[in-house]
Amino acid sequence: MSSLQLAREQLAQQLSRHKYGHHVVSLGEASLHAHRTIAVGDSFAEVLQRAQLPIGLVRGRVYQCAGVAPMSLAVALVQRATAEGSWVGWCASEHLNWSAAHNAGWCLERVVQVSCAEHWCEAVVALASGVEVLVVNVPSHVSPSSLRRTLLSTAVQQCVVVALGPMHGMSSDVVFTATQRTWLKENELQEQVAFASQKLSVHVGGRRVPSEQYFSLLVG
């Protein structure tokens, strides 16, 4: 019997002896913090399940967002994580529109942005020691060997890395690629028409994905 199972049984016995113990019907499987995945939105959860992957972002893995709308994909991927208490570090050269992130459901009180080009690797490793999700864009001057060492450090620190755009030849665990975008409009009856949202056709691939998948994601 593993130590986790033993601890679980002991806890169940203690609870059953408690005066309110009769309310305790069963206990869920215990798991270490490092083994718990970070929550994702329903669309992502469904496609990850179809792709026979753990439902959620697995700590230590690299997820890549690419295609016609990489930032929208990354924001949607990370939204549930910020809402459920995870800190997100933004270490990318692209300037995120924080209003758009707020509208997408991000809890901005748990977000930090690091602007650095020179010490990018050191900054990513330092930030990974305390935040659970890192959104990065690898600068062109970072060599593949430095990038490999950096990603190894983030993996050791159980940090999820979400990469925007290319990874300098390195393969990612899961790659979300927005292949096509359809614009949806609002206020059709009024004089002024505006883009209300986008519907993205997303391809899911990557070295950890046994069977490639497609799904649609509504953004906005």
Binding site: W87, G89, H119, E122
Partner: peptide
Amino acid sequence: SESDAAARMAIARVAGVVGQEHVCVP
């Protein structure tokens, strides 16, 4: 939460690497 405390420490650490003015929050 504990993750908030860990994040604050990471922010202090990364500020030591890249400089305080480069670590920002919205």
